[in-house]
């Protein structure tokens, strides 16, 4: 009898763990979907600016700002740098800022 109780408890724990894993997966895909929508929206904004032939500091600021946000989204949530040690996670962010700063200075 104690054995069957232990087995039943183990089974219950496995079911709860499995449900929790499913829930975690659904939450993570929902979160990445929202990020994807943000990335596509910023892309379409940039495309619209390009097609309208907008130029000058405002257009430059919006395009580079959009690239900065998109890049950081990819770094943080797609590359999962949010889970990496800071000394390594900071490298792509510094790269992104440096490249965009050079572009801004040259334009």
């Amino acid at each position: 009898m104690p054995n069957s109780t232990t087995n039943s408890q183990t089974l219950n724990k496995q079911t709860v763990d499995s449900q929790q894993t499913d829930l975690d997966y659904r939450n993570s895909t929902r979160k990445t979907f929202v990020i994807w929508v943000g990335l596509v929206s910023l892309t379409l904004l940039g495309y619209w600016i390009g097609m309208e032939g907008m130029s000058g500091n405002l257009a430059l600021g919006i395009l580079l700002g959009a690239a900065l946000i998109k890049g950081q989204f990819v770094i943080t949530y797609f590359m999962e740098m949010v889970n990496a040690p800071l000394k390594w996670a900071i490298i792509p962010t510094v790269w992104l800022l440096l490249v965009l700063a050079i572009i801004a200075l040259m334009y």
Partner: peptide
């Protein structure tokens, strides 16, 4: 899977700069 995914995201990240730089910014 994480290894391959990280490389693929790098390819995406680079394009995110390349697109506005080469196609859009006037």
């Amino acid at each position: 899977i994480e290894t391959g995914a990280s490389y693929w995201h790098m390819v995406d990240l680079v394009w995110i700069i390349l697109f506005p730089l080469v196609y859009l910014i006037q």
